[in-house]
Computed example of a mutant assay.
Amino acid sequence: METGRGPGLRAITRAIARDEVRARISRTAEELFLTRGYDETTVDQISAGVGMSQRSFFRYFASKEDIVLDNYDRLGHDLLARLSARPETESDWVALRRAFDVVTEQLADPEVRGHGTAVQRLVDSTPGLLAPYLQRLDGIQQRMTGRLAERAAARGRAADPVVLRATVGAAFACLQAAISHACGNEPGALADLLDSAMDSVRGAEVVTAEVVT
């Protein structure tokens, strides 16, 4: 018997089944995108590859663009969750680094890293994907900047939003540099590369970003 305090077993089961179907569609679509090209792949081809009708496809994704960008939506959710879980007393720079563990953990698997690199190259080379990807990336950084402002407020301080935004941007630049090196040049431990990059620019974390209120 459901108590109303949370989703019932049936709802949870449906959600799990839906996630599994979405994952199967994503895998099929990405394989087609990488072998045939994004623009050359149609929703009909994706639907056929999964074994469903086009009508059924649209129950799970609004467009083929959403299949690729869904990865970044989920990443943004995970990054914000990790950042929110960090201790309020921890410095913003360290909290951001620990939030990036979401990425280093995923890309520690060579197969996942290779697939992720291929998908990112697809996004970078496809105008129809690049613009919305950049919008999502900016949205992720804005939400993480807002979370840092909330952390400052919890400590009884007001934070300079410009400095916080710059701090988040600098941290993401370190992450991108580490990923590019790990995936495009000499294979290495992404976590170590990220640590090195963020340690080298740690001065970007300006103590005066916070002003006592």
Rank of each mutant, 00 (worst) to 15 (best):
R121L: 08
G128S: 10
A158H: 14
Y72A: 12
P87G: 05
Q141Y: 00
Q142P: 00
M144Y: 00
R27D: 14
E150K: 03
G188Y: 06
F100L: 14
A153I: 06
R165Q: 09
D124R: 14
C174W: 00
L164V: 13
Q135G: 14
R5H: 13
A209T: 11
A154P: 01
E30I: 12
I16V: 15
S196M: 12
T41A: 00
V207Q: 12
V68I: 07
Q141L: 01
S125V: 09
H115I: 05
L69K: 00
V102N: 04
A118D: 11
A131D: 15
S91M: 05
T28R: 05
L175Q: 08
I140A: 09
F61K: 03
Q135T: 14
Q141T: 02
A85V: 06
V68S: 01
P7Q: 11
L79F: 06
R74G: 03
E111I: 07
D92I: 05
R121Q: 13
L190G: 03
L80K: 03
A149V: 15
Y60F: 09
S63D: 09
L148A: 04
R5G: 04
R59D: 13
E150R: 06
A154C: 03
R113P: 01
L34D: 03
A81S: 12
S125G: 06
V168L: 07
G156M: 09
G203N: 07
S200W: 11
A48F: 02
D19H: 09
T28K: 05
A118Y: 06
R74Q: 12
E20P: 00
R18H: 14
V102Q: 06
H77R: 15
G203E: 07
I16L: 15
I16W: 11
L175F: 04
T35H: 08
E20S: 13
S180N: 10
V94Y: 11
